[in-house]
Write a protein that binds this DNA or RNA. Structure first.
Lengths: 236, 236
DNA sequence: CTCAACCACTTGTGCGGACGAGTTGCGATC
DNA sequence: GATCGCAACTCGTCCGCACAAGTGGTTGAG
C-alpha cells in the first residue's frame, strides 16, 4: 500500500504546477502566506516550510516585508547530461554489446576498485549509436562479487539498463558518481569503431554506493567532434 | 550595528563545532532532539530545523525511529577545481600576459555574448605555468562596456585576479558559470605555446551575473596529458 | 525456548499562536 | 505640497503542543 505524501510536499507540488501552467508567471507575486493558509486549508507552518523549500530550490524568491515572487522552473544541475550516468541508465540495443565476460583488471581500473592488478573482473564493452553512427565506446568493469548472478557477463542486450538490473537482482543502490574527464587520442580499437583518430574525451567514472564503496568503473571514449559536456555552477 | 544570528543557526554552529573538534565522531549518535532542547534551552522546532538543515548539507544523517548520526564535514562540490573559475580568480605573473586589447568578436564568442560577429571586444590572452612549463592557454573576452575604466586592456599583470578587479572597479558581481568541455586538436598557436600537438581539453565558459546576463567569455586549452577534470554528483 | 504484546524511546509532520522586523500606502500635520 | 507617523500588510523566527510512525528492548503467555 502507498501513503499520501506529506502536506508540505503537496503544497509545493500545487505551487510548482501553477508556475509550470503559467498561472503564476515569472515576476508575479505569490499569494501571501496567510492567503495560502486559507486557500489550501493548512497551517502556516506548513505553507512556510513549502515556500522556504521552493526558495532553496530556486523556484521562487522571498523578500522580507514584500512577498514571495515567482522565478520560474529552476535549471537544476540534475538535468545536465552526465555521460557516465546515461551509460548505466539506458537499455541496450541488439547490436550494442561487443564483448562481455571475465578479464583481468587493468592497472588503472584495479586502482579505482581497490583491488590488485590482474584480479578477474567482469568487463562489458558496448557502443552507443546516434543515427547509425557510433558516437561513443563504453566499457563497464564490475567486480565478480557484484556481477555474479546477474546477466552482466552475457552478451545479450540488457533491456532496462545496468542500474535497474543491479538494483533489482542484487539490491545494489547507486548513490553518487565521480567523473574524471580528460582529452586523449583514441586507442587503435576505438579509432576503428569511431572511424576517426581525432581527439576523444576520455571519461573514467566510479560508481559508489551510499557507504562510499566503489561498485563499478565506467570508461568512455567520446569523440570531441560530437560531444560537449556542459556544467553550471555557482560562484562562491 | 550587527545582529545576533537566528537561534537555529546558532544550534547548527554549535553542532558543527562539536563535530569538527571530534567531540562527536563520525558514526556517533547525536543527542536526541529532546536532550538538545533541554541542553541548549530552545524549542524543539528550532532543534529540528537545525538538524534537518545539517542533514541536507550532509553533516549528519537522520533515521526515523533511531536517531541522528554524525557523518562528518561534507565535501562540498564547491571544492572541486573549476578551471574557468581559477582563471578568473588568480592573480597574474609578470610573464603571463601575451596580448591584451581590442579585437573583433569571433563568431562563437559573439554568439555566447549575444552580440553581432565582429563587435569590438577586449580580449586578454594569457598562459598558465606549472614548474616553468606552460600548462594552459587562456583567453578572456569582455564586452567594451564592462572593460572600460578597468585595466583589462593593458598588458600589465593584474595582481588580484579578474573577478576581484571587476568587482572593485565596476561593481560587477559574478553569480554562476556555465562550462562547456570538449576534446579537440590544439590550434597552431596553442600547439607552439604548449610544445605539443596532442589533444587538448577545450573549455568554453560563460560568466553570468545574478540576473543571468553574460559578463564575459573564457576560453581555455588544457593539454589532456596534464589535466583531468574531476566531478562528483548524486544519482537521482 | 519462542513469540507476540507492550513500552520507552526515537524522528516526522502538523497546528495555532506569538512576536519581531521590513515595506507600503494613507492620512494628519506642518 | 512635503513630511512624519501610523496602520496594515508582508515574511522571519520561535514556542509548546500533539499525534503518527519507526526501532529496540523487556516482559509475559504459551
Amino acid at each position: 500500500m502507498d501513503f499520501a505524501p506529506p502536506k508540505y510536499a503537496q503544497v509545493m507540488r500545487a505551487i510548482q504546477e501553477r508556475i509550470e501552467s503559467g498561472e503564476y508567471a515569472p515576476g508575479d507575486m505569490l499569494p501571501s502566506e496567510t492567503q495560502l493558509v486559507r486557500e489550501l486549508g493548512v497551517g502556516r507552518t506548513t505553507v512556510v516550510r513549502a515556500l522556504q523549500t521552493l526558495a532553496m530550490q530556486g523556484w521562487i524568491e522571498r523578500e522580507h516585508g514584500r512577498g514571495s515572487f515567482v522565478k520560474g522552473r529552476p535549471e537544476s544541475a540534475a538535468e545536465i547530461v552526465r555521460p557516465s550516468l546515461s551509460t548505466t541508465e539506458q537499455g541496450e540495443n541488439a547490436d550494442a554489446v561487443l564483448e562481455a565476460g571475465r578479464v583481468p583488471a587493468p592497472r588503472h581500473v584495479a586502482r579505482l576498485l581497490g583491488v590488485a592488478e590482474g584480479t578477474p573482473l567482469i568487463a562489458r564493452k558496448r557502443v552507443a549509436r546516434q543515427a547509425d553512427v557510433i558516437s561513443a565506446v563504453e566499457t563497464i568493469w564490475v567486480p565478480l562479487e557484484h556481477a555474479i548472478g546477474t546477466d552482466l557477463d552475457k552478451p545479450e542486450p540488457l533491456r532496462r539498463g545496468i542500474r535497474q538490473h543491479l538494483q533489482s537482482v542484487k539490491h545494489l543502490r547507486f548513490d553518487h558518481i565521480t567523473e574524471r574527464v580528460s582529452a586523449r587520442k583514441p586507442t587503435k580499437e576505438e579509432a576503428e569503431l569511431l572511424g576517426s583518430s581525432n581527439p576523444v574525451l576520455g571519461v573514467l567514472a566510479t560508481v559508489h554506493d551510499p557507504a562510499g564503496n566503489v561498485l563499478m568503473v565506467v570508461s568512455l571514449a567520446l569523440p570531441g567532434s560530437l560531444h560537449v559536456l556542459e556544467d553550471v555552477f555557482k560562484v562562491s
